[in-house]
Design a binder for these strands. Structure first.
Lengths: 109, 109
DNA sequence: TCATTATATTACTGTATGGTAATTTAGTGA
DNA sequence: TCACTAAATTACCATACAGTAATATAATGA
């Protein structure tokens, strides 16, 4: 028997996927893997503007994927939900399988 | 040691997430869980127009998440990559954990 | 108080895309 | 050939949003 999701659940799931559907946000999360980072640290590490990084961090925080710790004039952001990396890993595996399959098909089964 | 993703990988991963970031597409995939469906079958099952369903199916097919089998005047679509449901399950688990945590916080730890 | 630095916010623009109506394409049976 | 049905495609509109420049807020030190 196959369990179905309710429409409401699918909306929430889609919303979570949407947050993760931006390369810049993924790059931020990836950078935070190695530990907390300030906004300016991330601005250096990625190459995009400060406003852009702040906005993406706000999105990630609103969706509870990162946390913020203020220290003086600085804000330190950290990963709040390490499970996002499991998601990325699953996607990577899936993409690899697809490429393998297409490669095999190219060779003629 | 924490393995990082390359920018190119993150672009591909983001692109996959983007495909999954639409409730209607998730509903289509969810409907296909129980077996192949025709376009008109999906139009009935979901409640949206035929053009919309066709367009979403084209997106899903372009990204190799579904396959199509033509039979006469009909097209039967099927799940090509069952791993998408693992993704959804992971997201659901994560969302539940977050809600639990916020509920606990509301009660005061 | 004033200047400086870090971050957040606002306003704006261009692009992407979801939904829909209209049209096209193609298979089928009379 | 013609009518009918299923699906795909096209054109259009409205909305969402990533990126950026400008501005605001706030902490700190002189």
């Amino acid at each position: 028997m196959v369990r179905s999701f309710t429409d409401e659940t699918l909306e929430m799931v889609a919303s979570r996927f949407k947050v993760l559907a931006e390369p810049t946000r993924l790059r931020i999360l990836d950078a935070l893997r190695e530990g907390p980072r300030t906004v300016s640290g991330l601005v250096e590490e990625l190459d995009t503007g400060q406003a852009n990084v702040s906005k993406h961090l706000a999105v990630l925080r609103r969706h509870h994927l990162v946390t913020r710790r203020k220290e003086g004039v600085r804000s330190y952001y950290s990963i709040a939900e390490p499970a996002v990396f499991d998601l990325c890993d699953l996607v990577c595996d899936s993409l690899e399988r697809e490429l393998d399959a297409r490669r095999a098909a190219l060779r003629g089964d």
